[in-house]
Lab assay of single mutants.
Amino acid sequence: GPMASDKRPRTAFTAEQLQRLKAEFQTNRYLTEQRRQSLAQELGLNESQIKIWFQNKRAK
Rank of each mutant, 00 (worst) to 15 (best):
G1Y: 05
G1W: 04
G1T: 03
G1N: 06
P2C: 15
P2F: 02
P2H: 15
P2S: 15
M3W: 00
M3S: 15
M3Y: 01
M3R: 15
A4G: 15
A4N: 13
A4M: 05
A4R: 04
A4P: 15
A4D: 15
S5D: 15
S5R: 02
S5M: 02
S5Y: 01
D6P: 04
D6C: 09
D6H: 02
D6S: 05
D6G: 06
K7A: 14
K7G: 14
K7Y: 06
K7L: 14
R8Y: 15
R8H: 15
P9M: 05
P9V: 08
R10T: 14
R10W: 08
R10S: 14
R10M: 14
R10D: 15
T11N: 14
T11P: 13
T11D: 10
T11V: 12
A12E: 13
A12V: 13
A12I: 13
F13H: 03
F13M: 08
F13E: 02
T14M: 02
T14I: 02
T14P: 02
T14C: 03
T14A: 03
T14L: 03
A15W: 09
A15Y: 09
E16K: 07
E16V: 07
E16S: 08
Q17T: 05
L18C: 09
L18W: 05
L18R: 07
L18T: 06
L18H: 06
L18M: 07
L18S: 05
Q19G: 12
R20N: 03
R20K: 09
R20F: 04
R20L: 06
L21Q: 00
L21A: 00
L21C: 01
L21P: 00
K22I: 12
K22Y: 12
K22C: 13
A23C: 10
A23M: 11
A23L: 10
E24Y: 03
E24Q: 02
E24N: 01
F25P: 00
F25N: 01
Q26F: 07
Q26T: 11
Q26P: 01
T27E: 14
N28P: 01
R29G: 07
R29T: 04
R29K: 09
R29S: 08
R29H: 11
R29F: 05
R29Q: 14
Y30T: 12
Y30L: 08
Y30P: 04
Y30V: 10
L31W: 04
L31V: 05
L31T: 03
L31P: 14
T32D: 13
T32I: 02
E33D: 13
E33T: 10
E33Y: 08
E33S: 11
Q34G: 09
Q34A: 09
Q34L: 09
Q34E: 11
R35T: 07
R36H: 04
R36K: 10
R36Q: 10
S38F: 08
S38K: 12
S38E: 12
S38R: 11
S38V: 14
S38D: 12
S38A: 13
L39C: 01
L39V: 03
L39N: 00
L39R: 00
L39T: 00
L39G: 00
A40V: 04
A40G: 04
A40H: 02
Q41N: 12
Q41W: 06
Q41A: 12
Q41K: 13
Q41S: 08
Q41D: 08
E42V: 05
E42D: 06
E42T: 05
E42L: 05
L43P: 00
L43W: 02
L43I: 06
G44E: 05
G44P: 00
G44A: 06
G44K: 11
G44M: 06
G44F: 04
G44Q: 06
L45R: 01
L45H: 02
L45D: 00
L45V: 09
N46Q: 12
N46Y: 07
N46L: 09
N46M: 09
N46P: 14
E47A: 12
E47G: 05
E47T: 06
E47P: 12
E47F: 03
E47L: 04
S48Q: 13
S48D: 12
S48C: 15
I50C: 01
I50G: 00
I50N: 00
I50T: 01
I50F: 01
K51E: 15
I52F: 08
I52R: 10
W53Q: 00
W53A: 02
W53Y: 09
W53G: 00
W53H: 02
F54E: 02
F54D: 01
F54P: 01
F54L: 02
F54N: 01
F54Q: 01
Q55E: 13
Q55N: 07
Q55K: 13
Q55C: 11
Q55T: 07
Q55P: 02
Q55F: 08
Q55I: 11
N56A: 14
N56E: 13
N56L: 11
N56W: 14
N56Q: 12
K57R: 10
K57S: 13
K57A: 13
K57P: 04
R58V: 08
R58W: 07
R58F: 06
R58Y: 06
R58I: 13
R58Q: 09
R58S: 07
R58T: 09
A59L: 12
A59D: 07
A59Q: 09
A59P: 04
K60V: 10
K60S: 09
K60Q: 10
